[in-house]
């Protein structure tokens, strides 16, 4: 657990979270808290349970057996690996999807401006590049001013250059909006660059909970992930 979790209000509290697929235990009595505005990167090998944990927080695991205590804020946004834009709705309509605020459209236009897509409000999602589509997805996730942003490898499908630009954008957006963030990734450098805190998951348990400012962080993380350079 983070050392300062007791002093600050926590956005997310996870106690004894377990998830099983049949006999296979994916999450094994996991504890984790994320404080308000804290950016946590969740690293782990394939099958370590990181996506299962994110889906549990997003409430997308209704067919999965398991128990535990979860406390999450009211306003939660999810960014998926694919942009998941509805192809039959224009960009702005995608951004304000499910937003019931009276000034939804104005906020949507502002959110698009924030991700550098002013003027593309009337475009169809298929007219945008992969990176632009993912920017629209970011705008959609931020337009509701979430207290918690859940991101499941949001840049995994992008090329290396676009990914670097998206890192900058996400960092700026998070500084401005200050949501608590749980970023699931397999990219060690992405985690170091973006996160305030890095959690490594291994076989459904937390193997490591560190700050990216720690010396030799890259080697420490790679070792925890079972990669020996």
């Amino acid at each position: 657990m983070a050392p300062h979790a007791d002093q600050l209000t926590s956005a997310v509290e996870i106690r004894g979270l377990s998830r099983r697929f049949g006999e296979h235990v994916v999450l094994d009595a996991l504890d984790l808290s994320i404080t308000d505005g804290e950016f946590v990167a969740l690293l782990g090998r394939s099958g370590s349970g990181k996506s299962t944990m994110l889906r549990a927080l997003a409430g997308l695991d209704y067919d999965v057996t398991g128990d535990g205590e979860l406390r999450i804020p009211d306003r939660v946004s999810v960014v998926f690996q694919d942009s998941r834009l509805l192809p039959w709705r224009r960009v702005l309509d995608n951004v304000i999807l499910g937003n019931r605020a009276a000034d939804g459209r104005t906020r949507g236009i502002e959110a698009l401006a924030e991700v550098g897509l002013s003027g593309r409000e009337r475009a169809w999602p298929n007219q945008l590049s992969g990176g632009e589509q993912q920017r629209v997805a970011l705008a959609r996730s931020l337009v509701g001013e979430p207290q918690l942003l859940l991101a499941d490898e949001p840049f995994g499908a992008l090329d290396a250059l676009t990914r670097l630009k998206m890192h900058e954008l996400l960092r700026d957006l998070c500084r401005r909006h200050r949501p608590a963030v749980l970023l699931v990734t397999h990219d060690v450098d992405e985690a170091i660059k973006l996160a305030d805190r890095i959690v490594v998951l291994d076989a459904g348990r937390i193997a490591l909970d560190v700050r990216p400012t720690q010396p030799d962080i890259r080697d420490v993380l790679l070792r925890a992930l079972g990669v020996t350079a």
């Binding site: 997003a58 409430g59 997308l60 939660v76 998926f80 694919d82 509805l86 499910g98």
Partner: peptide
């Protein structure tokens, strides 16, 4: 995937 999206966006059934 779109069903999941609608769920996380808190859509009502009609929406």
């Amino acid at each position: 995937r779109y069903v999941e999206l609608a769920e996380v966006q808190n859509y009502t059934r009609w929406e």
